[in-house]
């Protein structure tokens, strides 16, 4: 008898609307997997030699650099920031490696620790970018864009004119070796993925990154040291860029500043196509793995079909535009600048 009615029709309408949005978001969540399946099927049909064991190995090989880059970038984008420093920084770390192992330019022979040194450099530069972004309140895209230019300058400076060729037998050993048919370099990149997965899901850090991207004010009010987390993210991104620079240097055994070129673009494509939104707080490393796979197989398929490399990079641009346009929140009135 005493059944009081609390809710009004308009509140029910509101609840219904929210439910609809939740449902829609769920579907969109799985879209990247669908896209991957679609391209896989399409390329199997039209690209000659796509469906072969040899080609799968090639794909795994091609996956390594974008995957590592993507893992770093994912965290940055989850924050709602960007890191464009990969081009210069990746090149610099690559150059550094070739100059530290046995090479044509100098008498260094550090062996494997050379990798570590180069990666640490990436880490340090990441910290520097993060510091300037956070403390100077300068938008991250601007900071990292400038840092990229600075680091390419240092990269060229490191070898002055003629790039160093690495002569270390260690490198050939690494490039030719494999476990269970998976090349060492790909294994390394998968390890980075595992680390990223762990960071995101099983540490406080991962939860805080998500929180800052979703709602920075809430994170701050809960006592999270937002600035420190942001800097840590840029350090992690620097680490990943360092690793990817080292991997590319090992692969071509040549320390050219161009090593970092055309790595940032596919990485951003992969993150966005995978469903991590540029506004932050949504998506994650698994999404990015799917994204990296999509980007890699498309690129691989286009190579197999004999498409010009310039057209390939232009196509990548078109893909990002479409992916971002599909993923942005159309209801928002004020858009990200």
């Amino acid at each position: 008898m005493e059944k009081k009615q609390y809710t009004s029709p308009i509140a029910e309408e509101f609840a219904y609307e929210m439910r609809r949005q939740t449902r829609k978001a769920k579907i969109i969540n799985y879209a990247p997997v669908g896209v991957l399946a679609f391209f896989f099927a399409l390329l199997s049909a039209i690209a000659p030699g796509f469906l072969s064991l040899y080609n799968f190995r090639t794909i795994l090989n091609q996956l390594s650099v974008p995957l590592v880059m993507t893992m770093g970038l994912t965290f940055v984008i989850l924050l709602g920031c960007t890191d464009l420093s990969g081009e210069g920084l990746g090149g610099f770390c690559g150059c550094l490696v070739t100059l530290l192992v046995i090479n044509t330019k100098n008498a260094n022979d550090f062996g494997a620790p050379a990798f570590l040194i180069a990666i640490c450099c990436g880490l340090a530069v990441g910290l520097f970018s993060g510091f300037i972004h956070v403390k100077g309140k300068i938008p991250s895209f601007m900071v990292t864009y400038a840092i990229s230019s600075i680091m390419s300058g240092f990269a060229v400076m490191s070898y002055r004119g003629q790039p160093a060729m690495a002569k270390d037998p260690l490198l050939t050993k690494i490039t030719s070796g494999s476990v269970l048919g998976i090349p060492y370099l790909t294994v390394a990149s998968l390890l980075v993925f595992v680390a990223a997965f762990f960071l995101q899901n099983y540490t406080r850090f991962g939860a805080y990154v998500m929180a800052i991207g979703d709602n920075e004010a809430v994170a701050r009010n809960t006592g999270v040291n937002v600035d420190r987390i942001k800097m840590k993210v840029f350090i992690w991104a620097g680490f990943c860029i360092g690793v990817s620079g080292v991997i590319s240097a090992i692969r071509v055994a040549r320390g050219d500043v161009g090593l970092g070129k055309d790595t940032v673009f596919p990485a951003i494509t992969a993150v966005v196509v995978g469903g991590t939104t540029l506004t932050g707080g949504k998506g994650g490393v698994v999404n990015s793995l799917v994204g990296a796979l999509i980007v890699t197989i498309i690129n691989n398929g286009l190579i197999l079909m004999g498409v010009n490399m310039y057209i390939r990079s232009a196509l990548q641009g078109v893909i990002i535009i479409i992916a971002v346009a599909l993923s942005v929140n159309r209801g928002k009135k004020v858009i990200v600048k």
Binding site: V272, Y310, G317, I320, V324, A325, K332, I335
Partner: peptide, 20 residues
Amino acid sequence: YLKIPSFIATLCTQSIWQSV
């Protein structure tokens, strides 16, 4: 119109025009 952040949009067109 597509609400793409400017750095992404122009990064894409940068790549496209460079290729052209």
